[in-house]
Computed example of a mutant assay.
Amino acid sequence: MSDVKFVVCHECDLLCREVSLKVGEAACCPRCGAKLFHHNRSTLDQTLALAITTAVLFSIMNTFPLMALHLQQNTRETSLFGAALAMWDRDMPVLCLLVILTTIAAPALQIGIELYILLNIKWGKHPQTTSLPMIVLQKLRPWSMVEVFMLGLLVSLVKLKDLADIIVGPAFWSCAGLIVVSAIMGSMLTPRHVWMWSQERKSHAHL
């Protein structure tokens, strides 16, 4: 029995015996049907590389122009933060703060926590102290809505294409890349993987 491992369902708290899975398979709770864990080949180094990639893409997204409008010999560029401030100038302070929260503040905090967790597991002296940051990360992820902003931006581009010449900036492509990389990160940086990497690091330290 010492070799038997168990996992607790995060939905109904049922104690389930852990089973071995093939790559791509997922284990579900026999009582409520919630997915317990998904088996993939993600490693700590791969996930850390993706986290660094998200940080670079996020920096580009907030540094370079998002798009530019060329109309009657006039060109006006705007950035992500500039677009949010434009809503403030048009007497939409709540929408402005919501955009800043969901597309700048929450993603920045999320990327920072992800980097902290991965760097702490890889080089930290106490890799087991990542439980609280992981809980915060799980609560924070639903507030990161870069993909919602991207969808709204695409709708705006379709409506403006007949009124002015639209020049897509580097931040636009960085935003698109960030959505894809963040989705992959969500499947790789899970509580189960963090626990497994921490245990591996702990066992190597005792050798």
Rank of each mutant, 00 (worst) to 15 (best):
A49I: 09
R90F: 13
E114D: 07
I135W: 01
F64G: 00
E11A: 15
R192K: 11
E114V: 06
V23D: 14
L160Q: 08
V94I: 12
G24F: 08
G124R: 01
S59A: 03
A205S: 05
K139M: 03
K161Y: 05
H204D: 07
H204P: 02
F149H: 10
C175Y: 06
P107S: 03
S174H: 00
P170R: 08
A86C: 14
W123D: 08
E200C: 11
W123T: 01
L154N: 07
S156L: 09
G33M: 06
S131R: 12
S198M: 15
H206L: 11
T130I: 11
M61W: 06
A171E: 01
C29M: 13
E114W: 02
K139L: 05
R90C: 14
T43D: 06
F6A: 03
A176R: 02
I111S: 00
L109C: 13
N40I: 04
G112T: 00
L85W: 03
T43V: 09
F64H: 01
C29P: 13
V56Y: 02
F64C: 01
L14Y: 06
Q128T: 03
S156Q: 04
F6H: 03
V180A: 04
E114C: 10
V23E: 15
G33S: 04
W88I: 14
L151R: 13
R17S: 13
L85R: 04
L66T: 04
A68L: 04
I166F: 07
I166Y: 08
I111V: 06
V136C: 14
D13F: 12
C29D: 12
C32I: 12
S198P: 14
M145D: 02
K5L: 12
S2H: 10
M188Y: 04
R141A: 15
V148I: 02
H206D: 09
E11P: 13
V136H: 10
I104A: 01
P191R: 03
K125Y: 11
G124A: 05
L36T: 09
Q199H: 12
D3G: 04
